[in-house]
Design a protein around this nucleic acid. Sequence first.
DNA 1: ACCTGAACACCGTTCAAGT
DNA 2: ACCTGAACACCGTTCAAGT
Lengths: 216, 216
Amino acid sequence: MRKVKLALKPRKLPVQARSKHTIDAIFEATIQVLLVGGVNKLTTTKVADRAGVSVGTLYQYFPNKNVLLGALLELHLLEVVEAIEASCLKFRGAKLDLLAKELVDVYLNVKLRSPEVSVALYSVAVAIEAIEIVQAITKRTQVAVSSALESVLDRQFDELDMVTIVFTTSLMGPIQAFLLAKPPKAVFERLRMQLQALTKAYLKASSVKITANKIP
Amino acid sequence: MRKVKLALKPRKLPVQARSKHTIDAIFEATIQVLLVGGVNKLTTTKVADRAGVSVGTLYQYFPNKNVLLGALLELHLLEVVEAIEASCLKFRGAKLDLLAKELVDVYLNVKLRSPEVSVALYSVAVAIEAIEIVQAITKRTQVAVSSALESVLDRQFDELDMVTIVFTTSLMGPIQAFLLAKPPKAVFERLRMQLQALTKAYLKASSVKITANKIP
DNA sequence: ACCTGAACACCGTTCAAGT
DNA sequence: ACCTGAACACCGTTCAAGT
């Protein structure tokens, strides 16, 4: 008999203008506090102060600290999947090399939009054990990417699911490592090339070439 | 003028038998508490209780909770690098395919030795922001692996450093993802094949073949 | 030398009272 | 409807006292 999981949702919907403003202020304050001292130093009181509200108000919208952090994380992860899903649709039926390049670009670009936030939210995910959120997003990514891979014109995959997950997760380690190291921007361009090489090589190695007359 | 970082070392060396036993008990208790509830639920009091000592004693050996967790993390990471370093030496001058296979095997095998502990320690690393420890280990890994890659008989790398880091970090994402998913053991064997394919394909794509008469 | 555990400070969370 | 902030519980850490 385990306790019912708290839904990672705001307790109250922003029906009124004032509360909408309050919620925005809280999110913004949370990012600021995260950037200053990381998750470990983040305190609900600090967030409330920075947002210009009292702790009580914060708890009116977010039943606890983890829900607040989870909601922020979800916002960011949704941006990422949506970008990936858009690319997957746009490049349906493209050639493998082109699709691989595009997916690497999209993924790297979202992460580079605000590197510090990406890094901070990464610790947040672990700190709050956001397995649900992360798995939901991962699932959506898998679906989008595997269907894109399946639609590729010149190649056919036999272990599609396995390949999809290895492909997508293999990008995370390198990107994470470089984001943490905070190298000059040019280094990320070299990383981009390497990641394209990595994914193209792997995806080719785990698929077979299709001859033009697939349907006779 | 920033505060001096606390060295992540025990405060006191185990000069006497009793304290050696105490430290062992504390480490063991820490693992147990971690496995039960993860880092977030880990409490110094719980650890002390489980180890059969008082909190005060715990703090005599570990100046704070993060040092305790850091020391445990370091123990595990040292096991990992040492295994990798050993393989790198053993396979000096081997052919690329063989080296790649070996490194994937070694890395996966250490992680699979106690999967739950691996997962738990992963959250620990993020929770305590163990950047120093992780970077030191990463550095050692890079040195060992890049020198092994350089010694490969049949291939030559031009962007050796970049390739080394992408190669090693690209394994982490997939392994992490599968460890979290806790699939049946057989799935890890399929993962092993995929990771071998991934690394072989990438390492080949980023190197050139050497003809036999390197020195005429 | 090593151990004990009550005491203190800090932070997450609540709730009675305010507008 | 929404906001406030003092009050409570819990956990990291200390230190005076014990063997």
